[in-house]
Design a protein around this nucleic acid. Sequence first.
DNA 1: CATAAAACCTAGCGGAAAACCGGGATATAC
DNA 2: GTATATCCCGGTTTTCCGCTAGGTTTTATG
Lengths: 129, 129
Amino acid sequence: MVLADHVPQGDPLQIRQIAEQQQIPDRYLEQLLSNLRRAGLIRSQRGAKGGYLLARQPWQITLLDVMTCIEGREAQSAQQGEHSLERLVVRELWQEVNQAASEVLQAHTLQDLCDRRDAQNNADLMYYI
Amino acid sequence: MVLADHVPQGDPLQIRQIAEQQQIPDRYLEQLLSNLRRAGLIRSQRGAKGGYLLARQPWQITLLDVMTCIEGREAQSAQQGEHSLERLVVRELWQEVNQAASEVLQAHTLQDLCDRRDAQNNADLMYYI
DNA sequence: CATAAAACCTAGCGGAAAACCGGGATATAC
DNA sequence: GTATATCCCGGTTTTCCGCTAGGTTTTATG
């Protein structure tokens, strides 16, 4: 979301700035960003004045994209050794649950989240006045 | 599901029997059953010839009921100290995801799962012939 | 009543994953 | 050429889940 906010400026954002703004350990954030980069969600520029940029526009990046990157789940599928019939049907239903969750995540983009946040912020300000 | 299968017999099922049938460590299964009992999903009878019984009929027990028991998640909610606005909206969306998952779980009962399993079993047998 | 058979309770272990540092190597603007 | 950034990789700490263990309480039965 911070990267999305910074898209208009056009210049890369550095780990330090993001980490400070969001109160995240910078060394840890670095690894998360690495994952996002390897997945092609963000681009990086090395060296002085370097940093990170979104690879696509904020409305073209779904939260499912983001989740699948940072939550590096490797499906332990196809290991159907001596699964009982019970475990099989439970497994099937579990996939249905995951599917439902994924659909919600895919229905929202980074832009959506930022917009919601801004709306929330405005509401708070109005209440303050 | 094993308990649901055993409902017609009417007598309580013991940990050992379930553990053996499903290849689960019995001492571990004991704790899972404890959770289900504390949540009121199953009833227990202590002493000799004791065991466990479903507290309701299999079609009256949703998988959401079961999940919320064995996955003892205590919501760490209401701890909105210095949550940034970003974290707030992300949290909101995360609840949407959970909601979607819960709805799928709530739409299926123990009976459903058992029926599916039996259907699957029949299909397998037909194929075998 | 005595005994055995079951559920009940509480504590802790072990491994794996997540969260988090640290030390360099590498690329790049100036 | 140097300062500044990302990159890479390994190690540490914390947390959680699956599981084990010992002992207590309840109850059917002879």
